[in-house]
Design a protein around this nucleic acid. Structure first.
Lengths: 375, 375
DNA sequence: AGAAATATCATGGAGAGCATCATTATTCGG
DNA sequence: CCGAATAATGATGCTCTCCATGATATTTCT
């Protein structure tokens, strides 16, 4: 029950309040000092002090005043999202996506490279290089401008950013992704499993924005899960959480087979089922049953507020969600809200951006951020 | 992704540092100011200030100096555990336990009442009253001296301290335990599911003291689980986490039946198996297989550092642990450390004490604790 | 132009933490 | 028994952070 609520120095207090001001300003429109003070709970005077400091350090900029009100017009301040850049990369079986985003997480430029599951390690890494390069070029940046990079990949990832085990891509096991990406962008590189990143993205910008406990289901050619517990991505002791698919009785291993047995192309089955094809409808039903079994195990274990379904099959929400909800109802003590991801196939790459931004924010607190040295 | 790292006032800093000093002093032996300063990271001067304040408020007392060293002998300070009392109650099917503990969690007096699963609600509540009364009397206290009470019970508990659903004790569903216990001790009453409390206790005083992520298995006439994630008890959105037993394919429903089928008294089966009885050994093997199935689901979902087995059957560690570990190995990607609870049937009541103490500590921070008004 | 409204700026004070140094109480060695 | 060494305590003054308050500035409304 460690806790480690350090407390400590006075400067620590300032750091916390500075972060609170940044959070208040981030994302939203520009605010006046009085507005910031109200949101952070600080006094106006202190707020002014903090904002001046952030202004000096380059985290905040003055925004144009808005006319209209009575009284002396207030200065408006905004988070200087353009102060830094982060890189997000999603390495999938069929495509590689890279995006450059600002400190608000707004995507400035993105690139996509088609790949195939059969591709070897070297070829795939080259595709990563091309996607990242194109993306940086498009945003008119060099690798050195990137403050942090987030990378999502299939398979288990270790703490140092190496791929420990990838079932879908055998050649992928053992790749040191962190080292590879660091060649492209020399800042910190955070590597994480793709399901986990998609979960993170849903809690950030997706449909789970207000959920503290959430289970994300990756429903696609592979089936996986990512967990957010108490507002934080849950990794586990060896970064192997959410791997419920390894348990045969929970059905995730065979889930997808029902679909491929019914038709050559998995995606077509949903269309056929929608059109009234009995065999396809049956296949979908069996798929959902198996998906729900593993999902129920997660829901019963964690009792989350929400289950979010993403992955390739989430496009077929109409034939998936309702049956899934019914199946969950069958097993669960309390069936949580079930929602379809709204992020489509951008989930993973957005999660990668979020991962990089989290790293940047940690360093705001410590004053170790790049900005300090730039000014 | 809220976060809510408020920051705030200067007094907040003092609160945090005061708590840090208390934590440093709690449990261990008396310390000198310099020792406290080293542990908290504060300067000696500030430590002195904080300690003086805590001395005034009654949280800390001076302890006798220890002779022997060279130089001016230092004053020693200790946490004044005797300043307050908490009550812990475990309401089980076969027994009710109540303990009174001091602020260190040291048990001052305990009482035990035998009950039966068949007992009605009223009778059981009367037994709770008797156990609590005997316990308070033995410690020479009245209910008003109790700063907070923790209560553990079978079944699901809602946020307000009512039993929502108890499968083992049908009559128990709907009891407002918080209200009932508040009649005995008018302070705050925290009610929680027994498996969760046992998990909490293991992380506090049991074998999982240094684990941040832990899965506790209640192995007994009932089978249940409690989860500690990131050092905190995980409750879930509706306090229904760990209920993996509701999923039939995971075997916890039928697990215990293997044992009762082999012998009238479940406890005997382990003894028989240990003695070499083939049928009993088989029954135990099947039991462990089923137990491990649900446990694997939890382990795969969460990837905890440790699995702790408690409950009535944990006395039979010799025939349980090794097979369980082997079964987990079969299903899990990374098998965590598996350990037997060392708390025996005290786990739940100790967890209840911890729950009450957590509540007290929260109030230390706010200055809302009883002590302030006493002095 | 004057009143009202609202924001910024300046001053002073309180709380918290820290560094420094003088003072005090021991033990140890001779 | 006395002085040196050792280590804790106590006092002083500084800085940092936050806050309350009131003076000043800039705008709109009448």
């Amino acid at each position: 029950m460690a806790g480690e609520l350090s407390g400590g120095d006075l400067s620590r207090l300032r750091q916390l309040n500075a972060l609170a001001v940044i959070k208040a300003l981030q994302g939203g429109p520009s605010l006046t000092l009085t507005e910031v003070a109200k949101r952070t709970g600080l006094s106006r005077a202190s707020t002014e002090d903090v904002v001046r400091e952030l202004l000096d350090k380059g985290w905040v900029a003055e925004a144009g005043a808005t006319a209209g009100g009575v009284g002396r017009p207030a200065r408006r301040y905004r988070f200087r999202a353009e102060a830094g850049r982060v890189l997000g990369i999603d390495i999938g079986d069929h495509k590689i996506r890279a995006v450059v985003a600002d400190l608000d997480g707004a995507v400035l430029h993105s690139a996509r490279m088609p790949v195939t599951p059969e591709m070897g390690r070297v070829e795939r890494l080259e595709a990563v290089d091309r996607a990242a390069a194109e993306c940086l070029e498009g945003a008119n940046l060099s690798g050195g401008d990137v403050w942090a990079s987030g990378v999502g990949t299939t398979g288990l990832v270790d703490g140092a950013g190496r791929v420990m085990l990838s079932e879908a891509l055998p050649e992928w096991t053992g790749v040191d992704l962190a080292a590879h990406v660091r060649r492209l962008a020399p800042g910190p590189v955070l590597v994480e499993n793709d399901s986990k990143l998609a979960a993170l993205a849903e809690c950030w910008r997706g449909v789970a924005r207000y959920a503290k406990d959430m289970v994300f289901l990756l429903a696609g050619l592979r089936t996986g899960a990512g967990l957010v517990i108490d507002g934080k991505l849950h990794r586990g002791f060896a970064n192997a959480s959410g791997e419920i698919g390894a348990l045969p009785v929970l059905g995730w291993i065979r889930a997808q087979e029902h679909l491929s047995a019914a038709s050559g192309e998995a995606g077509d089955v949903f269309a056929a089922a929608r059109a009234g094809d009995k065999a396809a409808a049956n296949a979908v039903r069996r798929y959902v049953k198996d998906l729900a079994l593993g999902a129920s195990a997660l829901v019963l274990a964690l009792d989350p507020q929400m289950v979010v379904v993403g992955g390739g099959f989430s496009r077929s929400a109409d034939v998936l969600i309702e049956p899934l909800r019914r199946e969950l109802d069958r097993w669960c003590i309390r069936t949580p809200e079930v929602r379809m991801s709204a992020l489509g196939d951008e989930g993973v790459v957005l999660g990668a951006v979020r991962l990089a931004l989290d790293d940047v924010e940690d360093r705001v607190l410590d004053g170790r951020s790049p900005l300090v040295s730039h000014l």
